[in-house]
Write a protein that binds this DNA or RNA. Structure first.
Lengths: 213, 213
DNA sequence: CCAGGAATTCATCTACCGTTGAGTTCAACA
DNA sequence: TGTTGAACTCAACGGTAGATGAATTCCTGG
């Protein structure tokens, strides 16, 4: 029991890729099968390792799911990128960036999160917390919206994006699933624009912060 | 072996409510836990019967799920009711009827379907078929849309409604979850209106069927 | 060279799942 | 009243899930 406890001995991790390949297999399998349908055994097989190794690295299936969802879901840059620039095109810009991410390799993680978020109850509350803390609290001040109108505006826009994600990437209903992304940008952009900074007559009595149109 | 085979003998069903209480418990449990998370044992307990009785009535879990989803999901009347009337307000009218159904007791079945639709794969394809056959093929002629624009317009509107259902009834994110329905109608109605019969510049080069605006 | 500890695997435990089939109760007919 | 057949229960089977802990390999620091 040397008291130089700060120094660790023993084998340094020879294959740090193994942990990452487990995470990759987990993301893929969660996206395909959902949380319940994705078994640890299948994830381990997909990564070419023993199921017990998954537990060795991540403990429980819940923690594995959280670890798999952590990295690829940082909407901060998306919000920042969409918020910077002309306020009159923030909706279109946001939809374009959103589709670029989901059409890319990161989309699998999004599908996994969406699939699993509605499966069990604890993942649903997790997803709700994620939306509130990571999106609402970040986007409201970033877009200069008041605390009165802001949350409803953001959630309205978010509901439209969730709907697009569901229809295009999860349910895969045609012609939405294989439409060019710019078609969707042109169609949905104005709606998001109106939700975020446009007039919502009948929702708010005309107040100050938006005479964009 | 009398050849008057049309006549049945024996005990007439004494408790036809049992079957319905199983269906009710199934809808509730499916809505809470999703398809995988809802066990037949839990459904039976919720209905106060033996698990084997569920199989006696419905055969397999799949058939029970289909039976539980069948009745409350007939969008025909919703589509008909929304399509009849002034074309300039079809979007608002549709959103209003949609929310009326989901805010009512039938909403639990909708949540169950949505939760389960993304869980397993066969339920996803089932949901896709449901959307295509029950909504697309019905709504496109009913709204007088062409085969070129119609499907995309309908799926765009459907994506917005799915997003609202997810945000308001599944994820339950505030302030959308507890907002008065008329607020959502006022906010979302114009978007659906534009998707269905409005101009979509950049999506279709202006053709004939919509100078509603 | 040697000892320690991380990386990895094997066999196994416990629990719950959907499903089955035999058995029991009991109202309605002949 | 005796028979029928539906409503309903009990006990169990086979399968698979997540999780555990001991055993094995093998790099690495001393």
């Amino acid at each position: 029991m040397g008291f130089l406890m700060a120094r660790r001995t023993g084998r340094r991790p020879g294959n740090p890729d193994t942990r990452e390949s487990i995470l990759a297999s987990a993301r893929e399998t969660f996206a395909e099968k959902g949380y319940d349908g994705a078994s640890i055994r299948a994830i381990a097989t997909g990564a070419g390792v023993d199921p017990a190794l998954v537990h060795h690295y991540f403990g429980t299936k819940d923690k594995l799911f959280l670890a798999a969802m952590r990295a690829p879901l940082d909407p901060a840059e998306l919000i920042d990128a969409a918020a910077d620039g002309d306020r009159a095109e923030v909706g279109t810009r946001f939809v374009r960036l959103f589709l670029r991410i989901w059409d890319g390799p990161g989309g699998a993680a999004g599908v996994a999160l969406l699939r699993s978020a509605v499966g069990a109850e604890w993942t649903t509350t997790l997803f709700r917390e994620f939306v509130v803390t990571q999106i609402l609290r970040r986007a409201v001040p970033k877009l200069g919206l008041g605390d009165e109108q802001g949350p409803l505006r953001i959630t309205l826009a978010a509901s439209q994006m969730v709907g697009i994600a569901m229809a295009r990437y999860v349910i895969k209903v045609e012609p939405l699933a294989s439409a060019p992304s710019e078609v969707i940008v042109a169609a949905v952009g104005p709606s998001v624009q109106r939700y975020l900074v446009g007039d919502l007559p009948g929702v708010f009595d005309q107040s100050e912060p938006s005479r964009v149109r």
